[in-house]
Amino acid sequence: MTRTLKLRIWRGDDKTGGLQDVTVEANHGEVVLDIIHRVQATQMGDLAVRWNCKAGKCGSCSMEINGKPRLACMTQVASYPEDEVITITPLRAFPVIKDLVTDVSFNYKKAMEIPTVSMPEGVKPGEPRMQQIDVERSQEFRKCIECFLCQDTCHVIRDHEENKKSFAGPRFFIRIAELDMHPLDTLRNRKKTAQEEHGLGMCNITKCCTEVCPEHIRITDNAIIPMKERVVDEKYDPLRWLGSKIRKREGIL
């Protein structure tokens, strides 16, 4: 069973561009990425699109479909009404390179600013033993496929380019949370740097990152808010601060 699909695809580069109308056939069960490939094969041979696994696991085909950040390979054409024109654009939080391909290097720079896990002295690779209940929180965050849809939808950088220098974004808050919750990590300033260097305080928890995550990671509830609470422990709670001075709690936690 086929249907005729009307598309508007954004084409251009960082200087100029616009939406172009396309009509194409779509087969039952196809996803938006299949349709883009058909357009590329039949009508727009030079259409640029980034893709790889077609299984929702590589995070390459992130784009905006009818204004919503989505993975093209996980978006069923059948989820749109027959008469609806589907608009496809590149991610709008990042600089465009060509057509549907954006420059997401901002995210790699932010990744490099976060120190990796710091194991206790003398612990050799393969030696650490941790119980499942101690690592299960962090395992949710390891599902991240780095599609950067959460980064794209986060209004702190999407709507304010100037914040990019001081805000790491939800993808990296789950990375910081993962490390701060790590039972063996010895780096003790992650909360402080999360707030002062990575811009955790700029997040106003409107949960868009959670809404668009294709891996259904509860970014806000399980990573950002717990990190905000940990920051409060260190920076804004005088009673906790006093308690930590008296009992040196950090060591037993």
Binding site: N204, T206, E211, V232
Partner: peptide, 26 residues
């Protein structure tokens, strides 16, 4: 701020919960 996900907010500047009064959310 924002009205909905992927809908541009109408503010020219944004500092989140880093300054008064919103820092009191802590």
């Amino acid at each position: 701020s924002p009205p909905a996900c992927a809908v541009a907010e109408p503010h020219a500047k944004y500092t989140g919960e880093t300054r008064a009064p919103l820092i009191m959310q802590n």
